[in-house]
């Protein structure tokens, strides 16, 4: 049963090489820097975050890289701690959102038609509510504002988007012939989900999770800005922005510095997401 077909390519004709996308490098560097800053604050900060160490509303200087706030506290220290809080809330919220969203989305895709319609409608209704509003409701309902409620609130609010996306992605994969082939090959449904469905949806999913991460970091800042996030003296970027609001004309750097930190983290996450997707997708690997 040995055949030498004409359409056999030469074994050396194509060799495959994984090229690391630029966006992955840049995004990884930016997010890595934030991560490093966040981890650093657990061990060491330039100043005590609550200590009044300089003049009020000082300009950036060698001693105070981002200046000081209106109580004379070092802003750079607070921004570093803000990075930790943003990353904690971001990863926590994405974990909560992905856990709920991926589970519900996959269940919906496997459900009977009627149940699937109910799921789909529920996701759509939830998405219609602004994330921040849902998060505010949850924080208000729990009667306390803490990092934990912020994580839970932002995670739950974002889970509907992940659930809807997961449902569509899973349904698309389930309609492929390779799923039928897997059933004929004897694979069970759980192993089909883990071997065929999840690997085929995660590149798209990861992009959205990273996007959600950025949104969650922003939502945390918004909640803190409104006084519903981490309570003072936690130096959330949102709280820094809110405090700088009154003096934004006299000391603009108090708003610019935390704003910049937030924007770069979100951009970094988006770049990282895009790079990861390009890297993970075998059809996008360069062949030479």
């Amino acid at each position: 049963m040995s055949l030498t077909p004409a359409d056999t390519p030469q074994p050396t004709a194509i060799s495959v090489r994984r090229k690391i996308p630029l966006s992955l490098i840049v995004g990884g560097l930016i997010v890595g820097l934030h991560l490093l800053a966040g981890i650093l604050t657990i061990l060491w900060t330039p100043y005590e975050p609550t200590a009044m160490v300089g003049g009020r509303l000082a300009e950036p200087s060698i001693a105070h890289w981002a200046g000081t706030d209106r109580l004379g506290r070092d802003l750079f220290t607070q921004i570093l701690i803000g990075a930790r809080i943003a990353l904690e809330v971001g990863s926590g919220a994405v974990l909560v959102g992905a856990g709920i969203g991926i589970t519900l989305g996959t269940l919906a895709a496997f459900a009977t038609r009627t149940l699937d319609d109910v799921f789909a409608a529920a996701f759509d209704i939830l998405i219609a509510f602004p994330t921040l509003l849902v998060a505010m409701l949850i924080v208000t309902a729990s009667q306390t504002a803490s990092l934990f409620t912020a994580v839970l609130a932002i995670g739950i609010a974002g889970s509907a988007i992940i659930a809807r996306l997961t449902r569509i992605l899973v349904k698309r994969v389930l309609s492929m012939d390779y799923i039928v082939a897997a059933r004929v090959a004897g694979s069970s449904w759980p192993s089909i989900v883990f071997v065929h469905v999840l690997p085929n949806i995660w590149p798209t999913l990861i992009v959205n999770l990273a996007l959600q991460f950025g949104l969650a970091a922003m939502a945390e800042s918004s909640l803190s800005y409104l006084g519903l996030g981490a309570p003072p003296p936690n130096a959330s970027w949102g709280r820094l922005l809110q405090e700088a609001q009154g003096t934004v004309y006299t000391a603009p750097f108090g708003a610019i510095a935390p704003g910049l930190a937030l924007v770069t983290l979100v951009i970094g996450m988006n770049l990282l997401a895009d790079g990861l997707r390009a890297f993970a997708d075998p059809t996008r690997r360069r062949s030479r």
Partner: peptide, 16 residues
């Protein structure tokens, strides 16, 4: 009993 399907593009998992 095994099977071969019509469309060789969708019958193979692109990630395997």
């Amino acid at each position: 009993v095994q099977a071969v399907f019509q469309d060789p593009y969708s019958s193979l998992d692109p990630r395997q």
